[in-house]
Write a protein that binds this DNA or RNA. Structure first.
Lengths: 141, 141
DNA sequence: GATATAGATACTGATATAGTATCCATAAAT
DNA sequence: ATTTATGGATACTATATCAGTATCTATATC
C-alpha cells in the first residue's frame, strides 16, 4: 500500500461524505471517515478547493462544504482536480538513430494513447457525484 | 524515472520492431532498439512469449519472432500480456462503522470503475500492431 | 486574546519500477 | 563431443513516487 495513486478514490469518498450528509465538515472528521492520515486528506481537500469543487471556510469553526451541486460534479471533474499521473506512460529512452521504429514509436504511441485517455475521460464524465451518493444510499437502505 | 509502468509501451515497441523488420531477433538487439536494460526487456519478452504473441527459439541463433500476424494482434492483447496494474486504484483503508459512505464507497467505486476499465479495453482493442507499424512507416517515409 | 481551523513545508517510511550481476538450460555451430 | 550464443531465471540494488508524521503560520470565530 503506497505506490498506486489512491487520491482520486479518496477525493470521491470525501466529496460523497460531504454530499451525503449535506453540511460543512473539518478535515479531521473527513479523514476519520476515510480512516486515512489527516494531512494526506487535507492535501487532497486543498486540491478540491482550488478546483472549486469544495468550498473552504478558514479559521475557527471552518471546514469544507460543496461548492456546487452533486449533480453538477462529474467524476471527471474530480479526476481532473486531483490530477493523477496519466494512466498510460510511454517509455522515454533515447532513440536509436538507425532504427525507424525507435525513432517514431514515441510519437505514434502518444497519438494512440491520447485516444485511450479520451475514452477514460468520456466514461468518467458520465457519472456524477449525485450518482455515487444515490448508489451508496441504495446499498445502505 | 521509475514508478510509472512503461512495460506496455516497451512491449509495443519491441513487437513493432519485429513486425517492421519481419524477422527473428535476439533480446540484445531488441533491447538495443529500445535503448533499455537488456534484462528488463527480456522479462517483457518472456511475458509476450507466454501470451503467445511472440515465438521464441532457444539456444544458439535463437531469438524472438511474431507468433501471429500483426493484423491479428491488438494493443489490448499486448496490454493483457504485460498485465500492468489497473489504471484506477481504490483506497483500502478500514471502514468506519458509523459512516454510511465509508461502509459502501469501495463497492460503489469498484462498480463504476469496472466500466471505466472496460472503456480502456474497448479502445485498445481497436488498434492493431499492424496499425502501429503502418503509422511508423508513414512518419518515416 | 484564546482557540480551532485551513494550509504549507520538511522530513521519513514503504513500495513498485527498473537496473545490475550472475547463473542455468538448451540448441546450434564447429 | 565441445564450444558457444542464446533464452530464461534469480537475487540484489537504486530510485522515484506515494503516503505518513511532525510542525509551523495565517486566519476567523468565540
Amino acid at each position: 500500500m503506497a505506490s498506486v495513486n489512491t487520491q482520486f478514490s479518496i477525493a470521491v469518498h470525501v466529496l460523497a461524505a460531504i454530499a451525503h450528509n449535506e453540511g460543512v465538515f473539518t478535515s479531521e472528521i473527513l479523514a476519520g471517515s476515510v480512516n486515512a492520515n489527516p494531512v494526506f486528506v487535507k492535501r487532497i481537500l486543498v486540491k478540491l478547493s482550488k478546483a472549486k469543487l469544495a468550498k473552504t471556510t478558514v479559521g475557527k469553526s471552518g471546514g469544507y462544504g460543496l461548492a456546487r451541486s452533486p449533480k453538477s460534479i462529474s467524476l471527471l471533474d474530480i479526476y481532473s482536480a486531483v490530477n493523477p499521473p496519466d494512466a498510460f506512460a510511454i517509455h522515454a529512452y533515447p532513440k536509436t538513430k538507425e532504427c525507424v521504429v525507435s525513432c517514431n514509436i514515441k510519437e505514434v504511441m502518444s497519438d494512440v494513447l491520447v485516444g485511450t485517455q479520451e475514452a477514460v475521460r468520456r466514461d468518467l464524465r458520465q457519472t456524477t457525484l449525485a450518482d455515487v451518493v444515490s448508489k451508496i444510499r441504495a446499498r445502505s437502505g
